[in-house]
Nucleic acid binder design. Structure first.
Lengths: 390, 390
DNA sequence: CTGTTAGCGCGTTCAT
DNA sequence: ATGAACGCGCTAACAG
């Protein structure tokens, strides 16, 4: 039983939205808005969290929330004065749209998910920055998940992104990811997915890659041109395309130049630091040392350099080394690490461009696209035995 | 005008939820559930995104969504068979709760925001990993924002987090952040905020810091013990407590040991790489060189080493260097960089623990807490002129 | 140009 | 033990 606080009327009372947690009423008889006295003490009430809503703006201005909504969205058929009043009030009340409500209403969260195996090395961070540079201006923000090279965590990440109703997903899988069931969820739910760098077979989605085969080939070719003949490969996991392609580039370069392939010169590692150290030790403790090593990535190459140095092996004269990715540390270490630079920023941007294309496409059937970017050989001291031929 | 597809009845038709985008009906006369034939072609309809909801589970099982909701939450007063059926169906339909709806209904997003200036160096990534290790088990997930050392981006980040209705925020500000208006928003909205590492004055919130003063003091003391007397300081921005505290530790160590303070030996930088290089050059081009440099952090120390080496200055004999933070690169560079290690993992965990405490506190008034963690001096070649006294 | 209404998916009284 | 009804904040379709 609500009584008008002004005239005492009981029957002509209508509800009129809720303000700051309190029900607001309107007395039709005396044209008066009021709220029911709160039962909570003022302090307690103050502690109650509340962020401004369009309803707050609406009742402050005595207009309907639809009008507020339209004004805020820049709808054209709205009175200029009304719009200004709304925008001013929104600013005054420090209004921030509730993205939860917005997402629920539009069935779109304007959020992209990005899953990376780690972000300790600067490889993925640079890609993420590139991704954000495209996503943010387009009105999307990004949830970053790191699987920490663990398949279980990766699966948990996909569930979180599903639950968050992201509009699209960008992913680079862990070294131990072989089955892709957890990614099929996105396809079943119609959520576009684009993979980059670390992909595995069996998923028909758009991809952004660098030409790993070509990069590896050129890296090994460079070693050959430096006079190396007994070239080892510290290889990556073979469930990942990166691992396979770079191994293939290595093999083909050897064959092309008529060098023999020795099985004991190919060792595999699982992308963890300890595994890299073990693999490097294995190569550097062979009865007959290799004269050079092509490592599948820079972190592995750097561990190799450290171990070689600790063993007193001279780089590059006794052992030349080439890595892959041009991590910032590869310029710091001595000697500098020869490596294949990847266009990280461009990878990040391209991934999100492909993703947004799919999200905003009206087409029923989307043909997955694959973008392949070029790598660039950066020659530093770790491989330089002869002056470079230009 | 809806007609029962079974008996043709028109009047006894009730709406019964919506399944996969289609309105579902119930004929009271013949006890038959049906959906209206879709006007869309099957393919188009299939393309329509849909993720399983409790309503889908409910109508698959012919029960109400309230029951499903309760079963899913593990409510006690629910029939064991019903619960099992619900859980099985949820699994079968690959149900993931809609966090947008959940957040809207409960006015809590179960999301924490974390703002860092950058994540190219591994300092912040390690802290983020520690933060996630506490947040995730507690049922929260984390939105990571990077301000890229830009105040404007930082302000935008705070707005995104406000709009996402995060339950709490963890932040480390940019080098150019002086005013804190954009953080006051969180306080006004009753959203707990905890700051770490980079804080500035004028915000009465909980904080997690390392003992910067003490670390700086011990770093400089170490240089003095190595026989250095003309010790320079490559200092950080003085709007940040880190910058001030480390400068103060430097000054007090000099005074304590009776060494003079030369103004020209204190140069400031704004935490960007180019600024670090400029500052290092300034010090290394003085008419009388310093015999050692205490840098406010490792990136600055490393730039200093590189420039010193390029100038042929011998480290540590002509120039000893001490950094701060124990970045992984400080172990790689030659000579190894002496530095003060910070417990990054612990910082991340502590920050989120404080934050969760505030979020879940029932108290009206929260007394901000400040946790100060210890640093550890790691001595490497960059400062080692004498054998260490144990 | 503006107000009214329904519904997005979920938890939560209030009934039964 | 279960169902119906409401509201969280917002957009959009439908009336004027």
């Amino acid at each position: 039983m609500i009584k008008c606080v002004k005239c005492g009327e009981v029957d002509a009372i209508a509800k009129s939205g809720i303000i700051r947690g309190k029900q607001r009423f309107y007395c039709k008889r005396c044209d008066y808005y009021f709220t029911q006295p709160s039962l909570l003490s003022p302090e307690t009430h103050h502690h109650r969290r509340h962020q401004t809503t369009i309803m707050d703006i609406a009742s402050a201005l005595q207009i309907s929330k639809s009008t507020v909504s339209r004004a805020l969205q820049g709808h054209s058929d709205i009175n200029a004065n009304t719009r200004k009043a709304v925008l001013d009030m929104a600013h005054q009340l420090d209004y921030q749209p509730n993205l939860l409500a917005l997402g629920l209403a539009k069935s779109r969260s304007f959020t992209l998910g990005i899953i990376v195996p780690e972000f300790i090395n600067s490889f993925f961070p640079y890609i993420i920055i590139g991704a954000q540079q495209v996503a943010n201006p387009a009105g999307y923000h990004v949830i970053i998940c790191q699987s920490n090279e663990s398949l279980d965590t990766e699966i948990a990440n996909t569930n979180v992104l599903m639950a968050s109703r992201v509009d699209g997903v960008v992913a680079s899988v862990t070294a131990e990811t072989k089955s892709l069931d957890h990614f099929h969820k996105f396809q079943r739910a119609g959520i576009p997915l684009v993979m980059f760098n670390r992909i595995c077979d069996g998923l028909d989605v758009s991809k952004v890659l660098v030409d790993d085969y070509d990069g590896a080939y050129r890296g090994v070719e460079h070693l050959i041109q430096q006079g190396c003949t007994r070239i080892a490969h510290l290889a990556g996991p073979q469930n990942l395309q990166v691992g396979k392609q770079r191994l293939q580039g290595y093999l083909d370069a050897l064959r092309k130049y008529g060098l023999p392939v020795y099985d004991e010169l190919i060792v595999y590692y699982n992308l963890t630091k300890t595994s890299a150290q073990a693999a490097a030790r294995q190569l550097l403790e062979l009865p007959t040392l290799p004269d050079s090593i092509f490592a599948v990535n820079d972190p592995a190459a750097i561990e190799t350099i450290l171990i070689a140095k600790s063993k007193g092996i001279k780089i590059p004269s006794e052992l030349a080394i080439v890595g892959f990715s041009n991590e910032p540390t590869s310029a710091l270490i001595e000697p500098g690490l020869t490596t294949l630079a990847q266009p990280l920023d461009e990878i990040g941007k391209t991934v999100v461009q492909l993703l947004l294309h799919e999200i905003e496409s009206e087409d029923d059937v989307l043909v997955p696209r694959t973008e392949i970017l070029k790598t660039q050989l950066i020659v530093r001291g770790s491989s330089l035995r002869k002056p470079l031929v230009s």
